[in-house]
Structure formats: C-alpha cells, structure tokens
C-alpha cells in the first residue's frame, strides 16, 4: 500500500516536471541577460533582469497585444449575439429547411480553414480590408459560429415553452421574449461559448498570417512570430516576448480555473 502510494507520487512528480519544466525554463531565461544565458543556459533563476521585457515592449509588442484584445473581444461578442439569435428559432421549430440550415452550420466544425483561405484572401483584397483588423474579425466570427450555435441550440431546446407562452399572452413579441426571457436563461451556455471562443480566437494564427502584413495591425501570435524572425539569436529577449504573450492567459486561468475547464469540456464534448 505504501509502495503504491510512493509510486503514485513519483509518477505525479515526473509529469509535473514534464509539464512545468519548459514553462519554468521560459520564465527563468527571460530574466537573464544575453551573456548570462550563454554562460549558463540551464541554470534556473540565477539572474533577474527586466531589460528583456523593456526591450520587447519598446519593439511594439504591446500594440499587438492591444490588437489581440480588440479582435478577440469584438469577435466573441458578435458571435455570442448572432449565434444566440440564430439558435433561438433553430431550437424551436421543426420544418425541414430548419434542419438543413442547422446541419449547414454544424458541418463547419469539421472544416479545415485552408479550404477557405485563398478566396477569403482575394475577397479581402478586392474590397480593400486586407491588412486591417476588420479583415480577420469576419473569418473569426464565421468559424466560431458552428460550435456556438451547436451549444446554444442544445441548451435553448431545454428551456420550457411555458415561459414563453405566458409572455406571449401578455403581448410580448419574439424579440422581446428573446432578450428578456431566453437570453438571461441561456447565461451558462453563453459562458461556455465565451470561454471556448475567446481561447481559440486569442491564439488564432493562420488567418492573421494570411490577411495581415503590417506589424502595427498584427495580433499577438503573429507579432510574436515576427519578433522571433527578427531576434532569433537573442534567446532571452524572445523568451521574454513569449512570456509576456502567455502570462495573461495563464493568469486568467488561475483565477477562473473551474469555468475554463468547464467551458472547454462542454465545448468539446457537446460539439
């Protein structure tokens, strides 16, 4: 029994090192000066300088950071609004066309974005939105719709009809019912939709890569890669850039751990 427990602890600690070492190494290296890094690349937390962070911020990574916030917030809120609007009738009606529309949306979950890249690139160029945040918000919303509509229809179809019927008696129209009854009751599912999409959009890379070219319009993943391309020999500086880009997500997770886990689990299992 004791042996077994010791075995479990050993295994748990092996996985701990496996998961955490790269991240510990990342943060430790970002606090070293370049000469210190070459002198002892593997020593952990022997140097503490914030110079790399200052340099990264001066290189304009904060702009990318801000772009990521703008793009993620706008995309996720638009998705939450239009996906729940569409999900309401889709969860309530039974005619054939309805099911076809639902399936059309759902199939989107499986699609590789590559199948849409070239036309979206050409289209964005021709209407003059190429290399702007607007260019990526469109595809972000579109590709977040399938999973969102899926989660929301499932949730809304469980809201009892009687609630709407009594509101109908009082003369409320569909839009009123939607905003005053359905939407407030859908809050838990909306939370899932929010978390799931925010994480994915925050990290999205390929649309940004294809649709944005100027550094000032880049989102964080793209700005990060750009920085990597330019300063790849300055290991501590790149490590500082990676840390800076990752810390917000790590902090957000620490404070909302249960919600994030639930959001991802529901998003995946129900999707």
């Amino acid at each position: 029994m004791v042996m077994k427990k010791v075995g479990l602890y050993i295994l748990a600690i092996v996985f701990l090192i496996y998961a955490a070492y790269p991240i510990v190494y990342l943060i430790s290296t970002s606090l070293k000066s370049q000469p210190a890094f070459f002198e002892s690349p593997f020593s952990l937390f022997t140097h503490f300088t914030l110079d790399n962070y200052v340099a990264v911020i001066q290189q304009g990574l904060l702009v990318n950071f801000l772009n990521s916030i703008i793009v993620s917030v706008i995309s996720v809120f638009v998705v939450m609004l239009i996906a729940s609007l569409a999900s309401y009738p889709l969860s309530r009606m039974k005619f054939k066309l309805n099911r076809a529309v639902f399936l059309l949306f759902i199939v989107g979950m499986m699609l590789p974005v590559h199948a849409t890249l070239i036309p979206i690139f050409r289209f964005s160029n021709s209407i003059g939105i190429y290399d702007s945040l607007v260019a990526i918000i469109g595809p972000y919303i579109a590709f977040a719709l399938p999973i969102s509509i899926f989660i929301l229809t499932q949730f809304m179809s469980e809201i009892p009809k009687s609630l709407e019927e009594s509101a109908m008696m009082d003369g409320a129209n569909k839009l009123k019912i939607f905003f005053h009854i359905i939407l407030p009751m859908t809050r838990p599912a909306l939370m899932t939709v929010f978390i799931y999409n925010f994480i994915h959009i925050w990290n999205e890379f390929i649309f940004a890569l294809v649709l944005i070219s100027n550094n000032e319009n880049m989102t964080l993943p793209l700005g990060l890669r750009n920085f990597f391309g330019e300063y790849s020999t300055n290991v501590p500086a790149v490590m500082a850039a990676i840390s800076l880009a990752s810390i917000p997500m790590l902090l957000a997770y620490i404070f909302t751990q249960e919600k994030v886990t639930k959001g991802l689990t529901d998003g995946a299992v129900k999707g």
Binding site: L16, A20, F205, Y253, I254
Partner: peptide
Amino acid sequence: SVYFLPFLVSTVATGMLWVFM
C-alpha cells in the same frame, strides 16, 4: 493546474519555446 499549463500557451508561443529547447 500545472498539468494543464501547456495547453494555455498559444501554439505559436509553444512552437517558438520548443525551437529553443
């Protein structure tokens, strides 16, 4: 919490980190 950390680092950041590793 610690086991979950790798998933939270964006794929681009993960790729860069491991290039150095």
